[in-house]
């Protein structure tokens, strides 16, 4: 299944993934759930949110840069 994702402020990327949920996608991308909050369509979602073909996920960085 193909999904699109980006870290807030970064470029969109397309990934062919076997992940069924946002949490599995994060794990496959090496993004810690303590350090990124997932959102879909401008709304926050939990890691259990199911992915569908073409889902676009934005990861909001938790760690501030200062």
């Amino acid at each position: 299944m193909k999904v699109r994702w980006r870290v807030l402020g970064g470029e969109w990327q397309e990934t062919d993934t076997e992940a069924k949920t946002v949490g599995e996608l994060m794990a496959s991308l090496g993004l810690s759930a303590e350090e990124y909050l997932p959102s879909i369509g401008g709304k926050l979602v939990t890691e259990d949110e199911e992915l569908k073909e073409g889902t676009e996920v934005t990861f909001i960085p938790v760690v501030s840069g200062g």
């Binding site: 303590e34 909050l37 909001i60 938790v62 760690v63 501030s64």
Partner: peptide, 11 residues
């Protein structure tokens, strides 16, 4: 936790 401060600011 820091993560929850982010949720607060997003909401």
């Amino acid at each position: 936790p820091e993560k929850e401060v982010v949720v607060y600011s997003v909401l």
